[in-house]
Simulated scan of single mutants.
Amino acid sequence: MAFSIRLFVFILLLMFSSNPMIIMAKEIKYNHNSETISEIKEKVDFTILTPRKIPNDWILDTKTSPWIMLLYMNSKDTKLMIAIHLRKGFPLSNEDFPHSQQVDINGNKGYFHKWIDSGEVDKNGDTITGGLLNWVQDGTYVEMNSSRFSKEEMLEIARSMK
């Protein structure tokens, strides 16, 4: 019996050390009786993309009308960290975002526009940063916004979406 347990542990260690691409799925914490990502996927006819690079303690609030909204809140559920809006994709062009900076997100043309009051301090004493990021990936239109994360941090989260 002890040998079989040691063998099992050895095989697990071997699998994880020899294949760095294995990633353990983390449990998503939901709030406000939100529908789960799995439930939402069953209701729509487009790909639901979710970020992989987010802190473990964030809480997800989902809304499904008029489009899919993924609202990632801080661990105390008091501050919106990132909002992601999803709907069936449609072609984007430079004319749609004349004042935005073009960016690459997973090989897709995206557009970033910083907030007009970026760098100012809001009523809660937080410095406004970030902006609005738009792109189409796997047939899904994605609009991400944040006033708490920089453009680079938003792009890192956007590029982790699968």
Rank of each mutant, 00 (worst) to 15 (best):
I37P: 06
F97K: 03
L7N: 11
M81R: 06
I105V: 14
M21N: 12
F90H: 08
I37M: 01
D104K: 03
S38R: 02
I28H: 00
E39M: 02
K79P: 10
K79F: 07
N145Y: 12
S17D: 08
N124Q: 09
F10D: 08
S65H: 11
L12R: 03
I48L: 08
D122L: 02
G125A: 01
L155Q: 02
F97A: 09
P20R: 01
W58G: 07
V9W: 06
F3N: 10
L60S: 06
I40C: 07
W135M: 02
V121H: 06
K29N: 12
R6H: 13
K162M: 12
K41Q: 15
T78A: 06
K63L: 10
R6G: 14
P51G: 00
T62R: 00
L7C: 07
S100G: 11
N33C: 04
K114V: 10
I116D: 14
S65F: 15
T47W: 07
L71R: 01
H99D: 14
P98S: 01
G107L: 12
M154V: 04
L92D: 05
I48F: 05
K109W: 02
N106F: 08
I11V: 14
L155F: 02
P51F: 00
G110N: 03
K29A: 12
K26D: 10
D96P: 13
A25L: 12
W58E: 08
Q102M: 05
D57A: 06
Y72K: 00
L12H: 05
E143W: 05
P51K: 00
H113N: 15
M15L: 15
M73S: 06
L14Y: 13
E120K: 12
P55V: 09
